[in-house]
Design a protein around this nucleic acid. Sequence first.
DNA 1: TTTACTGCAAAGTGTTTGCAGACTA
DNA 2: TAGTCTGCAAACACTTTGCAGTAAA
Lengths: 151, 151
Amino acid sequence: MTLKTAHVLSENLRAAGHRLTKARSALLDIFLAAASPLSAPQLIAELGKRKLPVNKTTVYRELEFLMSQGIIRQIDLLDGRKHYELSSGGAHHHHLVCNRCGTVQCIDLPRGLDRITSAIKRTHAFEVTSHVLEFFGLCQRCSRPQRPKTK
Amino acid sequence: MTLKTAHVLSENLRAAGHRLTKARSALLDIFLAAASPLSAPQLIAELGKRKLPVNKTTVYRELEFLMSQGIIRQIDLLDGRKHYELSSGGAHHHHLVCNRCGTVQCIDLPRGLDRITSAIKRTHAFEVTSHVLEFFGLCQRCSRPQRPKTK
DNA sequence: TTTACTGCAAAGTGTTTGCAGACTA
DNA sequence: TAGTCTGCAAACACTTTGCAGTAAA
């Protein structure tokens, strides 16, 4: 499934007259494998680890490009950096950010905020086109009471 | 009411052994009069307008201080800057950010996200302690169809 | 061969830190 | 007077821009 997605992405890009360069495909690989949204500095570091050093300028430009193609979307995790993740499937989802260990998990809200956004339209005459909703707190592991050291 | 709030804030600060300096009270004034969350650069500019120039270092330190006192809270409006607003009353609320004209209005969600956060606790064993929810779209004015020039 | 893409250097924001001096209580 | 608060300068992290060269199709 992941492979197929990568393939589809590449084909779409090519069909639109864009090139599948080393930097671009490396970034797509990273995004496809990522478990949580990544910031530009994280991406730069990850590229370095993979022995595919890409200049930061290129990374920033590539992020802008992938955004313009609707391939990735921007996420804000309140740490002062912009994070990005694949927007594949178009399934809008949210994140659970652990304040202690920093892990980020994705979460779907089955009904979304439709109810709230339509209420907003009614009461404020404001046409909501998008929203940001992220949750912060303690993940399962971190909220678990100290258990006796069984090890 | 606003005046009372300002007074209460000052008294609380003094009672806690803090000082009510020019910079601090000017910032409180600005926050009390503000219609929407302000970023540090905006605050610096506003202080300048009021002929009360305050060094940016002081502004940043003051924001940190006011945060530590629970007087202001941090808001993220996705523009790369941190924004701040009074947290008075403790009433948690959200914002409607217009993508065209940039205006920000506040909005209360009567029931909040209690339903969602308790669902998250159940399904993900994640203890939500806070969340970020901001709406983006078109405000009443900007979404209004072009009306014939009546002027 | 064309031109989308890349890297380097430099500059632009927003924010933080160290330190000596200033002012509130 | 004491200790909080302030300004200045410099550094920092992240991001953007100009330009000349490289490489994908």
